[in-house]
Design a protein around this nucleic acid. Structure first.
Lengths: 212, 212
DNA sequence: CCAAAAGTGTTAAAGCTACACCCATGG
DNA sequence: CCATGGGTGTAGCTTTAACACTTTTGG
């Protein structure tokens, strides 16, 4: 006779912070796994859909409505004591639009994906999988819109791609492919911001998932 | 105050039956959704992992140990009355190795994917997603090993691909790509089976998931 | 010898990768 | 006029798609 299972939604929230791909983690100030960092999440009680639970978690932590939210997978057996499943999601947000909760209990913070500490539960694995998915989808979808503001320069977009993929992309080829793929369009605007030629600003034609 | 949620694993079991991609469905002989066909599944009680629960369902229905089993996604809200989540998996099996349960309660049967009836719950959507995943993975992995016996001819493999993708593939290009990718190798054997030249038999180098 | 499936190469088009120089601006 | 990032084209290579004839066997 086992107790009824608990169901939780957890969210890997990605953003580009200081040019580096980062995830939002909360610091656990109570057992279990006290003192470790972990993914934010919420227990699910059936009063809403799982996706809504994930979206609510995202909004609570970032203040921002998620631009991109996708289910990853479901894991069981995190807690050996009681039956529990966690449904993992990942989200992409514009770091500039985020207002983190300021709290002493479970304070959240951005952590660079390239140098994560050991996390509570199996959360390191979840983040690795999320990263693999984002990298793959970057190649054949427009999901990068989730990480950028309404208007941006091609340089910003280029750097976003490089941060996520973790490798340099040829600048000319990147522009060519991206413009040819017709996911972004130039607005008339230019951004002047230094002692150099101003950059044209672009926007995504669709701010919703599109496959190429 | 909501009751505790129930968790179930459901499995989309694919096989090639009479040259057509098919799924195994059970006929519901009791409410809810009595009289409709549905995906087989099992309630999860926490005594095993979700994947084990899916594998057990697969074995119970087919007698065969699943060669390929992968998690798809998790859906909530199937039952408006009580909170429930279903974790969907898909499996690939060799139809020849299957021994269906013969039962009067919830009898199972193969149904061609190309012409499915309306199914219980949201199961039509689950199957569509599973199909999309299998099609995508066929292109860049060796998962077809799950659908074929130990030894097979290139024609059989070719037809398997065509059944799943639902479109013809050039025979010469197919052979070239497949042999170049080094996922299969010729055994010395030939199969004589008619008034024509015998076909060489092949086998998969690895009968476990490999990315190309 | 006939019917049936097995086996095998080439060519054209498209896409990808690598690579270097001029332009517009602010100071 | 100088430093800084913005913007652009081409050539070689690899990959993909289209396509038809010869071989081996059983009856």
């Amino acid at each position: 006779m086992t107790p009824p299972p608990t169901v939780a939604a957890i969210v890997v929230i990605f953003a580009i912070v200081d040019g580096e791909l980062s995830v939002l983690l909360i610091h656990r100030t109570a057992p279990p796994e006290e003192g470790l960092w972990a993914l934010p999440g919420a227990r699910w009680d059936g009063s809403e859909s799982l996706e809504e639970a994930a979206a609510r978690t995202l909004e609570k932590e970032t203040g921002a409505r998620g631009l991109y939210l996708e289910q990853l997978f479901t894991v069981s057996g995190l807690d050996p004591a009681a039956p529990a499943v966690a449904v993992a999601y990942f989200a992409l947000v514009d770091a500039e639009a985020v207002r983190l909760r300021e709290e002493r209990e479970w304070p959240p913070a951005w952590h660079r994906v390239a140098s994560l500490p050991r996390l509570a539960f199996e959360n390191n694995v979840v983040i690795e999988q999320a990263l693999a998915r984002v990298r793959a989808k970057l190649e054949y979808t427009n999901i990068a819109y989730g990480l950028l503001p309404e208007r941006f320069t091609l340089r910003e977009l280029h750097e976003t791609y490089e941060s996520i993929l973790g490798r340099p992309l040829d600048r000319r080829n990147f522009r060519k492919r991206l413009l040819a793929s017709e996911v972004v369009e130039a607005t008339g605007e230019r951004r002047r911001e230094g002692a150099h030629r101003p950059a044209l600003m672009y926007r995504f034609l669709k701010r919703e998932p599109v496959f190429l």
